[in-house]
Simulated scan of single mutants.
Amino acid sequence: MATRALIFDFDGTLADTEAAVLRSWQEMFAEHGAELPLDVWHTVIGTQNTATTMFKLLAEQAENVDPESLRPAMRARVHELLAEDGPRDGVLDYLEEAAHHGLALGIASSSSSTWVHGQLARLGLAHHFTAVETGDRHNPKPDPDTYLAALRTLGVPAEEALAFEDSPHGVSAAKAAGIPTIAIPNPITAPLDFAKADLVLPSFTTTTLTKLLQYFSQ
């Protein structure tokens, strides 16, 4: 069946924002004489539980931690780290190919609308996407709601879409929505289990979108 739409996760998939967020948390833990285990970080990737889980863990390791007083510095540090970063390698080529094929484009993210729209504007990508569904408007991943909402907005059935994800939680969400799913892990998520994905690629540069569409139309 021909593909009519592509739906992308945002953080870690279209742009490697997760590296900056992880680094900012690691720095905060270190400032308080604590350590952030990477295996704990892996459990929250692709969900909306990052800040809650991290602050709880930090409070267990350090005394007198006030999450609300730390949030502004956290946000500022993340934006500082992201200032010069662009989309992941190959993303722009995929978006150009998608336009050539006349495909509808959407985003399904567990992050907030403010964050995703702000980052899309920073990256100059906003005009590509008809649907931007986020975790503050729908149940976040691993629930399928953001993907189901994107399908509704795009007017495309699940079997005529492809999803792109970088985390197992995201893959679970897309598959629960019935969408064939390609996992393209980033350096942080690469060691995780992507057995549920229909296809796993090392990067967007591994193959062209045209070849990928041919693969899924067989």
Rank of each mutant, 00 (worst) to 15 (best):
M1A: 14
A2S: 14
R4T: 02
F10C: 06
A15L: 06
D16F: 07
A19M: 04
R23C: 07
E27W: 09
M28A: 13
M28D: 12
A30K: 13
H32I: 07
G33A: 13
E35Q: 14
L36E: 10
L38S: 03
W41A: 02
V44P: 11
Q48A: 15
T50Q: 13
T50A: 14
T52Y: 07
F55N: 11
K56H: 15
L57T: 12
L57A: 12
Q61N: 12
A62D: 06
E63I: 09
N64R: 08
E68I: 08
P72T: 10
P72M: 05
M74N: 06
A76D: 13
R77I: 05
E80C: 02
A83Q: 14
D85P: 01
V91L: 06
L95E: 11
A99G: 03
L105C: 04
I107R: 06
T114Q: 14
G118L: 01
G118I: 03
G124L: 03
H127L: 11
H127E: 15
H128K: 03
G135H: 03
P142D: 09
P144D: 05
T146Q: 05
L148K: 12
R152W: 05
T153Y: 02
G155N: 07
V156N: 00
P157R: 07
P157D: 07
E160G: 02
E160M: 02
E165H: 06
D166A: 04
P168H: 02
G170V: 00
P180R: 10
P180G: 05
T181A: 10
N186C: 03
P187W: 01
T189R: 04
T189C: 05
P191M: 09
D198W: 05
L199D: 08
L201V: 13
L201I: 14
L201S: 10
S203W: 01
S203A: 10
T206K: 09
L209T: 08
T210A: 09
L213R: 11
Q214P: 06
S217I: 01
S217N: 13
